[in-house]
Design a protein around this nucleic acid. Structure first.
Length: 441
RNA sequence: GCGGUCAUAGCUCAGUUGGUUAGAGCACAAGAUUGUGAUUCUUGGGGUCGCGGGUUCGAAUCCCGUUGACCGCCCCA
């Protein structure tokens, strides 16, 4: 039996699985193209320090990292963000604005595989650099929705939860919490949905119990589900920065509504997205039934390009993972089945006919048709069966009778009609017969 | 890193209180069928029963270890 297996959490793509993967990639690229994003790629192996600089030492436990033969500490990329920051940062002054970039790549994380999580997976990363205002978020969240909706997923299937770390920090400061306490509260907020009151345990251990009236206000803020509720809570707090932030919120939500995406977006301050590097709006896409882990996540990270050695460049981005999205498409019956996809199948009588058929097969292939034929002599019955199973629309029959007359018999594998055409014009005859609705891929 | 469940053909599984050469369906291949696709029938290839050790006259079956998968926890950039 199999003496060697693939490593845990790594996937093998047999042709049917590869077809599913290609289907997902095509949908992503179609959306990115419509939104005017340019595709790029970059190395899979990076200096370990790139991730240490972004996420700290503790990230190492979850990386595929090693020392290469030149003594360099390297890691397989666990995400695209630091890499794209480096790329953009290095040429920031020469790049035409707005910088709208996307990529599809494989990423590697040394974690325990679970449902919706593997050790190797693909992500669709989209980022906009150089735009500090919510216009960038409108464009980006619009693309996020399109990248999912393009597969046939609707507002009943998924939604985007929208939150704001800036506003959280403003509000917590207005409640009298310092930076360390604010971060600890955000940590509790992040876990509150799952753990309830337990979520505040870590805060209590670090800073003592949160005063009851503060906690009450935190939980009330957590429950805000609309812009009007947000304005009602924050209006009395006052301040110029807060007013400007609320204006950003109005612009963002109005913009998304104007794009017709209102049904997909919900205000939800329970989302804070880890504690990594996000500085403003943050958002996550989930399935409506709440059965799967996050489909996509993103947000604004205005400090990161500079932190990684580039210029001061605002940025906002998101990533969609292929694993959870594939599960969702399966659940909703939106993953097509991919059969063989020949267009033409040559039925060949014997060795003499084979040589004659090859000339036409080569000509048809040169003309761009996908042509199959049996690699070894088979009874006609078998060949017609194989032709039907190949997915071809048309069989080309090369028998002794036809060749003697200088013709090829075309058999429509759908309605089973047959007619003969001169061999000299077989490419034209096939083109006429198949004309209309021929897909390219 | 921690816990639970599981591991027999490419896939889904059966396999009795431990007993001869481990089975079925699907899939794949050949034939019935040397010029027409269905159905059916026949036949075939494919297994060190995840791996290693132990108990036993005898282990797919019982015991120990190990690896892997799935589910959950931690984490989730």
């Amino acid at each position: 039996m199999a003496q060697f297996q693939s490593l845990p959490g790594f996937r093998e793509f047999y042709p049917d699985a590869f077809a599913r993967r290609s289907h997902i990639f095509r949908g992503w690229r179609r959306a990115a193209h419509a939104y005017g994003f340019s595709e790029y790629d970059a190395p899979v192996l990076e200096p370990l320090d790139l991730y240490r600089a972004k996420s700290g030492e503790e990230i190492e436990a979850q990386l595929f990292s090693f020392t290469d033969k030149g003594g360099r500490e390297v890691a397989l990329r666990p995400e695209m963000t630091p890499t794209v920051c480096r790329l953009v940062g290095a040429r920031a002054n020469a790049l035409k604005r707005p910088i709208k970039w996307c990529s599809i790549g494989e990423f590697y994380r040394y974690e325990r595989a679970q449902k919706g999580r593997e050790r190797a997976f693909f992500q669709f990363n989209c980022d906009i650099f150089g735009e500090p205002g919510p216009e960038a978020e409108i464009e980006l969240i619009g693309l996020l929705v399109q990248a999912l909706a393009g597969f046939g997923l609707g507002p009943d299937d998924f939604y985007v939860r929208l939150s704001d770390r800036t506003l959280w920090l403003h509000y917590l400061a207005s409640l009298g919490l310092d930076e360390a306490r604010s971060k600890a509260v955000l940590g509790a907020v992040d876990k509150f949905e799952k753990l309830g009151d337990e979520a505040f345990k870590a805060y209590t251990e670090a800073h003592g119990p949160l005063p009851a009236e503060v906690k009450e206000k935190v939980l009330a803020f957590l429950g805000i589900k609309s812009l009007s509720a947000l304005e009602a809570v924050l209006g009395p707090v006052g301040g110029e920065a807060l007013a400007a932030r609320l204006a950003d919120w109005r612009k963002l939500l109005n913009g998304l509504a104007a794009m017709g995406l209102g049904e997909y977006v919900e205000v939800d301050f329970g989302v804070v997205r880890g504690l990594a590097y996000y500085t403003g709006f943050v958002f996550e896409a989930f399935d409506r039934k709440g059965e799967l882990r996050a489909i996509a996540g993103g947000g604004r990270y205005d400090d990161l390009v500079k932190k990684l050695g580039g210029p001061d460049l605002p940025a906002v981005g998101f990533a969609i993972g292929d694993v959870t999205m594939g599960l969702l498409l399966d659940q909703r019956g939106l993953m097509p089945s991919f059969g063989p996809a020949a267009e033409l199948y040559a039925v060949i009588g014997g060795e003499a006919e084979r040589t004659a058929a090859f000339l036409d097969i080569a000509a048809l292939r040169a003309a761009g048709y996908r042509v199959e034929y049996p690699l070894k002599d088979l009874a006609f019955g078998k060949q017609f069966k194989a032709a039907a199973e190949s997915g071809a629309k048309l069989a080309l029959i090369y028998g002794g009778d036809e060749l003697a007359k200088g013709v090829v018999k075309l058999r429509d594998l759908g309605d089973r009609s047959e007619h003969e055409v001169p061999r000299a014009s077989v490419v034209e005859a096939v083109r006429d017969y198949l004309s209309g609705g021929r897909e390219t891929s």
